[in-house]
Amino acid sequence: MEALFYIFAFIAIFSALMVISMKNPLTSALYLVLCFFALAGFYVLLDMQFLAVMQILVYAGAIMVLVVLVIMLLNISKLNAVKTDFHQKIIGIVIAAVLFAEIVVYTIGGKTKKPTGIFTHEVINKIGNTQVIGKFLFTKYTLSFEIASILLFVAIIGAYLFAKKKL
């Protein structure tokens, strides 16, 4: 388990770095798919197989296919011609480093709460993690579920409006 965690962590961080450093957007997209697969591995290690499958289906499947399709629609030589400024790079690295230092300080220095819920490893494995998530989704979070469907409907209309010939 421990070894698997470090392997997935290495793959995820390496491919995330590759995503932002590659010149060609298509290479970045393929590294992003690799990163999503590593994150799906993390979800399996954390007893959430359903989320791992959703990660691969929705992110690595649907969203990345959409991204690759858009890259195909656009002219690839013009995509590669976009340059990055040097001073922008420096400012970005400084801000990201400060953000990361903050996250590390709060993660290491924060107090760990006692577990409050009842869904331990055994309980989740006995009921099945898909059933647990489904039960919560349709009882406690029904309103959020309905609002999510409205959001998807609005997104359909928005995507249609942007895709029209004349804005």
């Binding site: 995820a12 922008q88 990201a96 480093a97």
Partner: peptide, 19 residues
Amino acid sequence: GIIFCIGALGVLMRKNLII
């Protein structure tokens, strides 16, 4: 946190909209 900061770095640093 590391992945989040890499993402933030990409948003701040790159100018290609797709990236």
